[in-house]
Design a protein around this nucleic acid. Sequence first.
DNA 1: CAGCTATATGTCTATATTTACATATATAAA
DNA 2: TTTATATATGTAAATATAGACATATAGCTG
Lengths: 183, 183
Amino acid sequence: MNTLSYGLLSLLAQSSFSGYDLMLRIQPFWPAKHSQIYPLLAKLEKEDYISCELVPQRDKPDKKVYSLTAKGKEALKAWFDQPAAEPALRDEMMLKVFCLSYAKNESARNMLAGRLAYHEERHQTYELKLAQLREKPEWPEEGLPSPKHPLFGAYLLTRKAIMTNEANRAWCEWALSLLPEEH
Amino acid sequence: MNTLSYGLLSLLAQSSFSGYDLMLRIQPFWPAKHSQIYPLLAKLEKEDYISCELVPQRDKPDKKVYSLTAKGKEALKAWFDQPAAEPALRDEMMLKVFCLSYAKNESARNMLAGRLAYHEERHQTYELKLAQLREKPEWPEEGLPSPKHPLFGAYLLTRKAIMTNEANRAWCEWALSLLPEEH
DNA sequence: CAGCTATATGTCTATATTTACATATATAAA
DNA sequence: TTTATATATGTAAATATAGACATATAGCTG
C-alpha cells in the first residue's frame, strides 16, 4: 500500500468512481498516468480494499465502477493517524530560475510570462471548481460545509489551490517587474 | 539528460560544488537522494558537461568538487529556451484532506497543526536564507541584485519560497479555524 | 472519409526514484 | 565507550512513474 493507493481510497471515500475518473481526479494532488492507476486498482480489488462493478454505457465504452469496502475504510482510518510525508514539489522552472542571470532577458521574460499565464488559467479552473461544488445538491443551503460534511475536504483543497496559486501568480508578476521590458 | 541533470548544471552555473553540497542544495527544488546524484554526476563528468577535482580536507573526508565545463554551459543555455514541464506537487496530506470528514476531529486538528508548525519552521529557514544572501560579499551595497547579477536567481527563488509558504501557512490557520477546538 | 478528441481499459518497457547496503573520518553527546 | 550526527562517496536492489503500444466506441472537424 503506497501513497497513491491511499489516494485512490480517499477519493472512493467520497463516492464510487471508474478508474478513468479516479485517474482524472487525482491529478491535482498526486499526478499519475492511467498505466499506473489501472494495475493498482486491480491489486486493490484483489486484496479486497475496493469492490468493482461493470457498468455498461450507451454513448461511451463500458466502465468499471469501484467502491470502497469495509476493509478499505479501515485501512483509510488507520492511514489517517500515521504521520504524512513532507510535500514534494518538482518544478523545472525553479531550476531554470537558478541560472536566470545566464539567460537572455527575452528568454527569462517569456518563461515567467508563460508561468503567469499558467497561474491565471489555473485560477479560472479553480473558481469553476468552487462554483461546481456550490451547485452540488449536497452543498449546504447556508454557510460552508461543516467538518463532518462530505464536501468539506474538497472545499478545503480547492481553497488551498486558489491561495497557493495566487501567491505564485503574484510572484510571477513581481519577478517580471524586475526584468527590463524590451520594445 | 533528464531534469535533475539540468538542475545540477544550474547549481554549478553559480559556483563549484561537491556532490554532497549539490545533493543538499537541490532538495528544495528537486528532491533527490545522494544515491541518485552521485551516479548522475559521474555520467555528466564522463560526458564532459562537468569537470571534477579531488579536494583533500583535514577535518572532514576528502571531497570531489565539480565545475561546469564549456559544453555544460552550452547545454544549460539550450535547455533554457525549451518549454519547461508543469510543476508537480505530491503531498500526502492533501490526499488525507480529501477524506477529512471520515477522520476524528482530533486527528484532523493534529494533522493541520503539524503542517502549520512545518510552515512556521520553513519560514524561519527561508528568512535565514535571505539574511545569508544579504551577507554575501557579492550582494549589492544598495538595492536588490539586478537580473544579470549571479545572486538574482537565488533571491527570486527564496522570495518565491517565502510567498508560497506564507499562503500555505495561512491556509492551515484558516482550515484549523473551521475545526472545533476540544478542551 | 480521414484524422482528432474524449471516454474507457489494459499491458509492457524504460526510466526515475527510493531504500538498503557499504565504507570512512571527525565531533559531540550519553 | 557506545551511539549518534554531519561530512563524504559509492553500489545494488526494489519500487514508482512515465512513455509507448494496443484496442474499442462515439462525436466532431476538415
